[in-house]
């Protein structure tokens, strides 16, 4: 299988400025050397707790957040990450859907205007065919074409998320980054949206990079998972292996903390402080909360493990 998107050692920092001339005083190291790849037609997930940098990673992969260092390639061609034009060439193939459907649609544009804009920009269809095309797109996401003249505020969260999907679907991208797209929705609506997305993935031959904190959702849809902690990937592998045999203590802790209805199995919560992302420890960032901490953890762990499942830990679980 060919890799559609390959990212190597991506770093994306937020500047903390201060003083009279706004000099950079320190950084929030949101993404601190992440490598990942997404194959053609694959669904890959990135999971991690809030603030681990997974959303920033999603933005960085689309050039919406400045990339400090690292290399990216799409369909085998490398992208000049600091060049605006280089990104503009990718816009048709690489798209993103955001978490909050309430702020993802311009409140002053009708659905028709929102959906037709990218179609015209990328020359997908002629002006005379726009209405039909927008209607067709709405049908694809199981909405009525008559809705196109309404404004976003008259739609529910689930409907808005469908409209957002229709918008990116229109330009027929190859890869869609889905940044927590269902976490703002009701559980019943979540399932509908996920099902729709999987159906569209098959019919449009899409690849999906799914960013989420919801392990149940991630497990249900993705083939491969990256677990992030404080800007770094701590473990990656096929989802079944990761769920059954986590190697990294953090992955294990994430799985253990899922609340269940089984009262005898209480969720195991992590203890200890999360280090500040402005001042990361030199060694393993998880060490301060890790039960299996040893002296070696003062050093940054190297990638180890098999090809399928790899992890960054000195004291992996068995």
């Amino acid at each position: 299988m060919m890799n559609l998107l390959e990212a190597h050692d991506i770093e994306s920092y937020f500047d903390i400025r201060g003083g009279l001339f706004g000099r950079i005083q320190s950084y929030v190291k949101a993404v601190n050397g992440v490598s990942l790849n997404v194959g053609e037609g694959e669904i890959v997930s990135v999971v991690g707790e809030s603030g681990c940098g997974k959303s920033t990673l999603g933005l960085a992969l689309l050039g919406l957040q400045k990339i400090r260092s690292g290399s990216l390639s799409f369909q085998g061609e490398s992208i000049n990450v600091n060049d605006f034009k280089s990104w503009q060439g990718l816009r048709k193939d690489l798209q993103i859907i955001f978490q909050d459907p309430y702020t993802s649609l311009n409140p002053r544009l009708t659905i028709y205007e929102s959906l037709s804009e990218p179609l015209l920009l990328h020359g997908i269809c002629k002006k005379s065919e726009l209405k039909d095309k927008v209607g067709y797109l709405l049908e694809q996401v199981e909405l009525k074409p008559e809705m196109m003249d309404r404004f976003p505020h008259s739609f529910s969260g689930g409907q808005r998320q469908r409209i957002c999907i229709a918008r990116v679907l229109g330009i027929e991208p190859k890869l869609i980054v889905c940044d927590e797209i269902v976490s703002a929705l009701d559980v019943s609506v979540q399932a509908q949206i996920l099902e729709l997305l999987l159906k569209l993935k098959e019919s449009h031959n899409l690849s999906l990079l799914f960013i989420s904190h919801d392990l149940a959702v991630v497990r249900a849809i993705s083939r491969r998972i990256y677990v992030m902690y404080l800007g770094r990937v701590v473990e990656e592998g096929p989802s079944e292996m990761l769920f059954h045999q986590p190697k990294h203590p953090y992955t294990k802790a994430l799985l253990d903390s899922i609340p269940t209805l089984d009262r005898s199995r209480r969720p195991v919560l992590l203890e200890g402080e999360v280090p500040s992302p402005t001042n990361l420890p030199t060694g393993c960032a998880f060490a301060s909360r890790c039960k299996y901490k040893s002296e070696k953890c003062g050093e940054l762990p190297q990638r180890s493990g098999l090809d399928d499942q790899s992890y960054y830990c000195h004291n992996p679980l068995n």
């Binding site: 933005l59 689309l62 919406l64 503009q88 816009r91 048709k92 690489l94 798209q95 993103i96 955001f98 978490q99 909050d100 702020t103 993802s104 649609l105 311009n106 804009e117 990218p118 920009l121 990328h122 957002c164 918008r167 990116v168 330009i171």
Partner: peptide
């Protein structure tokens, strides 16, 4: 920093 502006940027406007 609203999402619809990010979307607009991602769409290449």
């Amino acid at each position: 920093n609203m999402n619809y502006i990010r979307v607009a940027r991602a769409l290449g406007l």
